[in-house]
Design a protein around this nucleic acid. Sequence first.
DNA 1: CGCAAATAGATTACGCGACATATATGCCAC
DNA 2: GTGGCATATATGTCGCGTAATCTATTTGCG
Lengths: 155, 155
Amino acid sequence: MPHRMRPTEELRYLILAAQREGNRLLLQALRPLGITPSQAEVIRILQDHQPLALNSLGDLLVCESGNSPSRLVDRLTSAGLVDRQISAFDRRHVELTLTEEGRRLAGQITAIEEDLYRSIDAAVEGRDTDQITGFLRAFVADLPAGRALARRIAS
Amino acid sequence: MPHRMRPTEELRYLILAAQREGNRLLLQALRPLGITPSQAEVIRILQDHQPLALNSLGDLLVCESGNSPSRLVDRLTSAGLVDRQISAFDRRHVELTLTEEGRRLAGQITAIEEDLYRSIDAAVEGRDTDQITGFLRAFVADLPAGRALARRIAS
DNA sequence: CGCAAATAGATTACGCGACATATATGCCAC
DNA sequence: GTGGCATATATGTCGCGTAATCTATTTGCG
């Protein structure tokens, strides 16, 4: 006799499960590069938007509430992938740019992400994308991560 | 000039954003109870399935890959919400049950989850649920978190 | 019976992710 | 310029989440 979980509760856990598994897949795929999914997000953002202040990076990050990506970036600078430079105009700002090595990695990340997108596309197959994205957009519309993503798409 | 993020990439980040924000909402709503969303999931599972071995709990958890919920449960036992008892038949097993206090909390958690489900329902409003759950089910079907959820629904 | 393999769980290490707080810099009013 | 407020970043703490390794216990095979 099933517990007959209600649809909304199942949906909640499906979102959790999908995020967890997507992250795990990406984690394993990125392992050879020595970086994590969150670090990869930073690198991809910098590739498209450098130079960028820590602050503005936080505004574009979905993986974090944006309060303090400094530690996330710390690991990338110690790994020699990101360059930090204090702004000449406002010494509170830190200008972030990719290093040569970081730019090289960015390309490899793109290729790895392709595999993930193929998995997602396979699951979307035969369904109405707009129903799915419409629901998710509505859910996160007024929340920090949703706004970060909106900025990413718009910029 | 928008970057025109491709739909699949947006979908990937929408799932990430939805999970993060849902978790944040739940985290804040549960704060007065002194527990976290993951801890709440354990309590709710125990409410429906106790007594349960640590191992079997892991098989039902979506929030964790199931390898080692021992730390998660540790905090619940130190908080006096869960009782650990070594099985008489197999001393490798630990039987978990809710304490009186744990049972009391389980009810409060259910009420708090209702609020989250209302937010989700509001975003689903006017869309085809089957398109959404169908996609997510397909994506996680053969992965640990998806199987955990399937067990939850079936049991 | 005896020993190897399997199983349950604990422990450890590392990197987030959320939150609160601290410090440093800029800026504006006066 | 100085006081006060806002902004940019750094730091500390807690609880996951993943994975690897370790220990204890049971089981299975001879």
